[in-house]
């Protein structure tokens, strides 16, 4: 049987695409933090505070208490969805939320916080994505759970909603606080 090779091009294109999807899918099961980051300290950084470039923050500023580290951006529609939950956490829970403003524009970011409210204890301006790359951030929003020593205990990709908060974060935080109090 003679098969004109050019008619098989779409098939090969498709197989290439499937390979990418399959690899991508295997590589980043969105539930899992790449194992090399889990239970390791935060990568070192020295980045300006959002809206105040004269003052910089380093990883040590986040130590001392169990806290959340939230990666957000104004170009990220999901962040708008997530925001009310962050606001609620900051209102009702005794836990600090640190923000990483990721690949963003300072003016827009500040306007965004004014518009939707500011749940963050402090905001790190990661405008060339350096810290986000070190953290292995895939997109926004992502939320990291840090223990008192600044060690990454959990990573959540996507929106932290009521359910995620209740089912995943609340028990883990309770456990971390218990360990912390015990030690």
């Amino acid at each position: 049987m003679i098969v004109a090779r050019r008619f098989l091009v779409p098939l090969f294109g498709f197989l290439g695409l499937v390979t990418v999807l399959a690899l991508g899918f295997r590589l980043q099961d969105p539930h899992l933090l790449p194992s090399q980051m889990l239970n390791r300290p935060l990568p070192a950084f020295n980045l300006p505070r959002l809206g105040n470039p004269s003052k910089t923050w380093s990883e040590k500023d986040l130590y001392g208490k169990v806290s959340l580290l939230n990666v957000w951006a104004t170009w990220c529609p999901s962040c708008v969805h997530e925001h009310p939950q962050l606001m609620r956490i900051s209102r009702e829970q005794d836990i600090s939320i640190f923000g990483i403003n990721y690949n963003d524009d300072t003016v827009k970011a500040l306007a965004w916080l004014q518009r939707y409210g500011d749940p963050f204890q402090l905001n790190i301006a990661d405008h060339d994505g350096q810290l986000a790359i070190d953290l292995g951030v895939y997109g926004a929003p992502e939320t990291f759970l840090l223990d008192a020593k600044g060690i990454i205990r959990y990573r959540h990709v996507g929106v932290v909603d009521e359910q995620v908060w209740a089912d995943i974060f609340t028990p883990m935080i309770a456990e971390l606080n218990r360990q912390d109090g015990g030690s």
Partner: peptide, 13 residues
């Protein structure tokens, strides 16, 4: 996805 694959785990959006 492609970027991540070729750059051994680095991410981009």
């Amino acid at each position: 996805l492609i970027y991540e694959w070729f750059s051994s785990g680095q991410k981009i959006s």
